[in-house]
């Protein structure tokens, strides 16, 4: 319990530091936020009144505390270009991105785990080398290339899946694959090395000597322990996926936070970009915290006293 409390406090401190960095970044920018809000044709008087309204004429730390108190109330400021609060924009886009991330994690697990297990069963075999080669390909393939390639093959040449968009389960398949394949390659490699390590342990040999079947040995004794590092990996995926979501959502026209970011990039809507960075830091901290919580559930030897 103490440990978890420590982690929560640590997470809160990280978020505080992130908010300071993000805010500092916004202030250091060459562009004048008041001018960006007012638009290029606004008069100097309008720009000045907007500057007062936004509190931009106040000293740095006063501005930061103001920003922080607003942040704690969930107020991330307003977009330069869209007349909506950033918090509203993010919340309306969050479900689509979470769905995409869920699909990405499923794809990582469903492709990466079996590949890693199969490769570990006969190290050095053709199967092993083929799966590990594929894993390296998956890791080295940039998402936008993979996404466009998948679209070309499965939506254009053989039109079995939609050419992007959002709605049904069929829409999710290609974006989730694109998001998850790099991680799947990485998972396959980790599972393989974990399995090889566990399969060499004494207790596995003991179980084999007792007459446990090969299948039972692999599933009940080896796999159970080899999968433990996956918990932390899934927890940290959220952070990895936040960047990937920008690419995948822009390729597939997926209406989530990544698409919001991409649209914001093209019109240099800085508050939205910074808001996404802020949100993703929250999600990373939450993801790691969830992994910490899940550990003792999966492995009774882990206990936080």
């Amino acid at each position: 319990m103490r440990f978890l409390l420590g982690r929560v406090v640590q997470g809160a401190l990280v978020l505080l530091a992130v908010s300071f960095l993000t805010f500092g970044l916004g202030v250091l920018l060459p562009a004048d936020p008041a001018r960006m809000v007012a638009g290029p044709s606004a008069s100097v008087a309008t720009v000045n009144s907007i500057r007062r309204e936004l509190g931009l004429d106040k000293p740095f730390f006063e501005q930061y505390t103001l920003y922080l108190t607003k942040l704690l109330r969930g107020d991330l400021g307003r977009s330069y270009k869209q007349s909506a609060s950033i918090a509203e924009l993010l919340i309306s886009r969050l479900p689509a991105t979470l769905l995409l991330m869920l699909g990405g994690v499923l794809c990582e697990l469903m492709l990466g785990l079996p590949a890693g297990v199969i490769a570990a069963l006969r190290p050095g075999s053709l199967w092993d080398r083929a799966t590990m080669g594929l894993a390296f390909l998956g890791i080295s393939l940039p998402q936008f290339v993979l996404g466009l390639g998948l679209l070309y093959v499965f939506a254009f040449i053989y039109p079995i899946l939609p050419l992007g968009g959002y709605g049904t389960a069929a829409h999710l398949i290609l974006p989730a694959l694109t998001l998850g394949i790099g991680g799947a390659g990485w998972y396959a490699r980790v599972v393989r090395s974990e399995m090889l390590e566990v399969l060499g342990q004494d207790y596995v040999r003991t179980a084999a000597a007792k007459g446990v079947s090969r299948g039972g040995l692999i599933v009940r004794h080896a796999l159970k322990n080899a999968l433990l590092p996956m918990i932390a990996m899934v927890g940290s995926d959220i952070g990895v996926f936040m960047g990937g979501a920008v690419v995948v959502e822009s390729v597939f026209g997926w209406p989530g936070i990544g698409k919001l970011t991409w649209d914001a990039i093209r019109v240099v809507d800085i508050p939205v970009i910074l808001g996404v960075v802020q949100l993703s830091a929250v999600m990373i901290v939450l993801g790691n915290l969830l992994a910490d919580l899940a550990y003792p559930l999966a492995d009774p030897r882990v206990r936080y006293d």
């Binding site: 992130v18 970044l25 996926f241 960047g243 960075v277 830091a281």
Partner: peptide, 19 residues
């Protein structure tokens, strides 16, 4: 260094280069 791991590299790179 720990703090930097709380940022997703790709997203931050996108944000920084865009800004």
């Amino acid at each position: 260094t720990d703090l930097m791991t709380a940022f997703p590299v790709l997203l931050l790179a996108i944000a920084l280069t865009a800004i």
